[in-house]
Write a protein that binds this DNA or RNA. Sequence first.
DNA 1: GTCAATGTTTTTGTATACAAGAGGGTTATC
DNA 2: GATAACCCTCTTGTATACAAAAACATTGAC
Lengths: 231, 231
Amino acid sequence: MMTKQQPRTRRAQALREALENDIVTGFYPAGSRLDEVTLAKRFEVSRTPIREALIELSVAGLVDIKPRRGTFVRDVGIARLVEMFEVMADLEAMCGRLAARRITSDEVKALKAAHEACCNAQQGGDPDAYYHANQIFHDTIYKASHNGFLAEQAKHLQTQLKVYRRLQLRVPNRVSMSLTEHGNIVEAITSGDAVAAAEHLRQHVLIQGERFNDFVASVSAHWQEGDAKRN
Amino acid sequence: MMTKQQPRTRRAQALREALENDIVTGFYPAGSRLDEVTLAKRFEVSRTPIREALIELSVAGLVDIKPRRGTFVRDVGIARLVEMFEVMADLEAMCGRLAARRITSDEVKALKAAHEACCNAQQGGDPDAYYHANQIFHDTIYKASHNGFLAEQAKHLQTQLKVYRRLQLRVPNRVSMSLTEHGNIVEAITSGDAVAAAEHLRQHVLIQGERFNDFVASVSAHWQEGDAKRN
DNA sequence: GTCAATGTTTTTGTATACAAGAGGGTTATC
DNA sequence: GATAACCCTCTTGTATACAAAAACATTGAC
């Protein structure tokens, strides 16, 4: 990870990460109320750092603070998810476009290595391993864009979409299709074809056509699992 | 403005806006230390809502909180500024691309009105008026993209770049050039030419070629003003 | 039986009190 | 005279206490 490790002597910072994780993994499902005193008891701190963590999450867009009424895990509907993926596709395309022009020889090596790691993970048949290798592949491209701010933004959005990107891998054949696309992306970037790199990456991330239906289906299934667990 | 007015019974919210304004207008120059007790006295509240406002600003990227050492107005170097404008150009291009396909007839009216308001502001010769009208023009395009998430992101980044966008208007002839570009953008969007809309907007926002030098010059001058004031 | 009004309770928002780390200054020693 | 160690102060981070608003329940009237 490339985040500059600030000397962390703030509880709120750690709490924010913990809560972010709990939200992303579905421990606190969309719409849950995050009660300050309950959280304070759970983490064995006072309400103050809890409040500060919740405010951070609110600015980051993960929760809604309704003044005097409580804070709730933000409910991203299908519509908003699609919007977020639309933006993600554009950010990744931009990364690819810049990377095609700016990538260094060391980064080319890293990119090819990341691609091979994805191939190996698929051979192994472990979805989690592929998920992880895939993330490294994309991170490598962010970095190769040589725009640190862009890389931060892409990584940020990637975090929010993590859980849903993972869902996509459940769709049959998605992994092998994904690998083919990765190959095209590597080819375009290493050959310096900015336009092709951008377009391949956009199509890779964008959810449209048939894949939109696959996506809605898998997300709906995921949400129903959540509902079932709650009852 | 399109922000959904949450019932504001939180001091921190109002304080965040006030401080954001003070930072953007240069009242607190880059690098300034924002002392909690001083701010508390200034706004006649306790440290608690001040701290919460500072945390919000920190997540928004306007200040840096160095744990146990204080919070400082974030000093974005030229390199990072250029990176941010690079991303902004891409986001605006995306807004334009989508708007060209999705804009409604009401929004077309609003866009043309916003453009005319910019023209009138230039006639009036008031730079602040043009700055404001210009912002509305861009906001209208964000909204016309019909991607709420994208609009939020664009608005967010716009806020961070506010002060520097304003500086660009100081460059001689920049305003009239800007107006010509606005005309091309309106033409492209209303005629449904997504590619042209995207490209015109990217070029409009992007800082490159001669304009890069103009930009560096004006930012440096701005920083030196700040230094002079501090000493 | 339903609806409204009022009082109670719970929870958030703000203020204050307390703890602890960072910075600066002074003093003593080499 | 310079440097290092120690202490004091100042500021942030956390806990707790208090205020106020919203939700809830109870009770009374229609």
